[in-house]
Design a binder for these strands. Structure first.
Length: 452
DNA sequence: TCGACTTGCACATTTGAAGCGA
DNA sequence: ATCGCTTCAAATGTGCAAGTCG
């Protein structure tokens, strides 16, 4: 049986990006273009996520795509309000195992199948100013999961009976004036880990979904295959207790994904790197030096790789043993990425923040946005590199003239040709295949040291 | 035979256009 | 002409259950 508890830092579930020490060499003069605040990401709806994870979160995947419930909703602080960012999300394998449901618990069922290419769900508001991202919680409720490897609708492809965790990407949009690409951050949310299923296995999960998902209200209290409250309560408590790890493998930290794109991130060894120490990293260690930042002749993908953490973000927190020492673990693996209490009190977003405008009324067409990440049906064999995605976002932003503004009264599909047409211009972010001739720098987010 | 998966269904929410009055 | 509000149909999302597939 599995232990679904993720005893993260009980004080906070913020994931923070902190600058290196002032003398680390990472912060060089004139480059602190973000803010004096560390970048913080917090998963909203933790109580609900905890309810699910205590039982063993399952997410339905269908051929046509299914939304997540609970959906991922995050609050971000510490961005530069006047800088544009692209926010994306994908799913990464939680471990190397495949699972099966055995009467009342999950157990291992062999090794996982090779991870399919990561499909980035680009937030429909992207790119948008930092102030926008920080103004409202960023909701990924429109993200859809599928098991259809041939889908070309921008869905996130997953394997059934495999465990995944959401991963958030924050990419600083390119500045045309500086001809310099932006910074890149990513955060994983192990407390939102789930097993992808084509049909719910655990009835308690079904009950939780029905009780909490507004769309499933039709199944509430109608007696349809529902146990009495008394029975249900008993089952809940027993199922929670019964979800005990079956295999010792489960305690092992997740290994690098087999996704070629992500693997490329993780394994690209050459180039500059910001991590000043990484004891467990398999990558060569590099330090960022602004003087040689432009001297690299690496491929674009290699450069991206060089800017990314060696392994899973916040690595090790899946391991129960690591939970207690989580901040230390995180620091060891990624000196810059440290879990700390948020410097500012987290507002109750539901009460203190205004409701965000409805996406469908204020944003670019979702289809157009999704087109950024979708390609041919063979994408799973040849996924688009991140730089390619960024190029398209950049092109679309220019084409729209004002990202995030309403585009109404026009069929969505009519937006696409405009974007694609712009794609004929020289890309701001060189595509991976062009990287040999055009150095591409995707450097880490640069922030000013926190002023004491 | 069995587990994983697909499909159609009923029910509910969300969305957006249309109509109306101030 | 514009804005705000209400209404309503269509689109979309949900889990269930029966059937299919390997």
């Amino acid at each position: 049986m599995l232990d679904y508890s993720y005893p993260l830092n009980p004080l906070t579930n913020n994931y923070g990006f902190y600058p290196q020490a002032r003398d680390s060499g990472m912060i060089s003069h004139g480059e602190a273009e973000l803010t004096s605040l560390p970048v913080h990401v917090a998963l909203e709806g933790r109580e609900l996520w905890d309810k699910f994870s205590n039982i063993g979160t399952e997410m339905l995947i269908t051929k046509t795509g299914r939304r997540m419930f609970p959906s991922c909703k995050v609050t971000v602080t510490g961005l530069n309000p006047k800088v544009k960012y692209v926010v994306m999300m994908d799913m990464v394998p939680f471990d190397n195992n495949k699972y099966k449901w055995n009467r009342d618990h999950w157990e291992l069922s062999g090794k996982s199948e090779p991870h399919l290419s990561s499909r980035f769900f680009i937030h429909p508001d992207s790119p948008a100013l930092g102030e926008r991202w920080m103004q409202y919680p960023i909701s990924f409720h429109k993200l859809k999961l599928t098991n259809n490897t041939l889908n070309s609708n921008g869905l996130v492809i997953l394997h059934s009976m495999h465990k995944y965790q959401p991963r958030l990407h924050i990419v600083q949009a390119p500045d045309p004036c500086r001809a310099q690409p932006g910074a890149y951050l990513r955060f994983t949310f192990p407390e939102a880990a789930f097993i992808a299923v084509t049909a719910y296995q655990n009835h308690e999960i079904t009950k939780l979904k029905i009780d909490n998902n507004p769309f499933a209200k039709g199944f509430r209290d109608n007696g349809l295959n529902r146990k009495s409250d008394e029975e249900a309560d008993e089952t809940v408590s027993s199922s929670v207790e019964s979800h005990v790890l079956h295999s010792p493998d489960m305690k092992a930290p997740p290994t690098a994904t087999s996704n070629p794109f992500i693997s490329a991130f993780m394994n690209g060894g050459a180039g500059q790197q910001v991590w000043t120490q990484s004891p467990t990293s398999h990558q060569p260690q590099h330090t960022l030096n602004s003087n040689n930042r432009d001297s690299s002749r690496l491929s674009s993908l290699q450069y991206i790789c060089a800017s990314l953490p060696a392994q899973q973000d916040i690595q090790g927190i899946h391991s129960p043993a690591a939970h207690q020492a989580y901040p230390i673990q995180a620091k060891l693996h990624q000196p810059h990425l440290q879990l700390q209490p948020h410097p500012h009190p987290q507002p109750d977003m539901d009460q203190s923040l205004p409701l965000p405008p409805k996406l469908s009324r204020v944003n670019l067409p979702e289809n157009a946005l999704r087109s950024l990440e979708m390609g041919s049906v063979l994408d799973h064999l040849n996924p688009w590199p991140l730089s390619n995605i960024l190029n398209r976002i950049h092109a679309r932003a220019e084409a729209s003239g004002n990202a995030g503004k309403a585009v109404q009264g026009q069929p969505q599909h009519e937006q696409l040709p405009l974007v694609l047409e712009r794609d004929t211009r020289p890309p701001f972010f060189p595509a991976a295949q062009d990287c040999g001739t055009t150095p591409y720098h995707l450097r880490p987010l640069l922030v000013k040291p926190v002023s004491e």
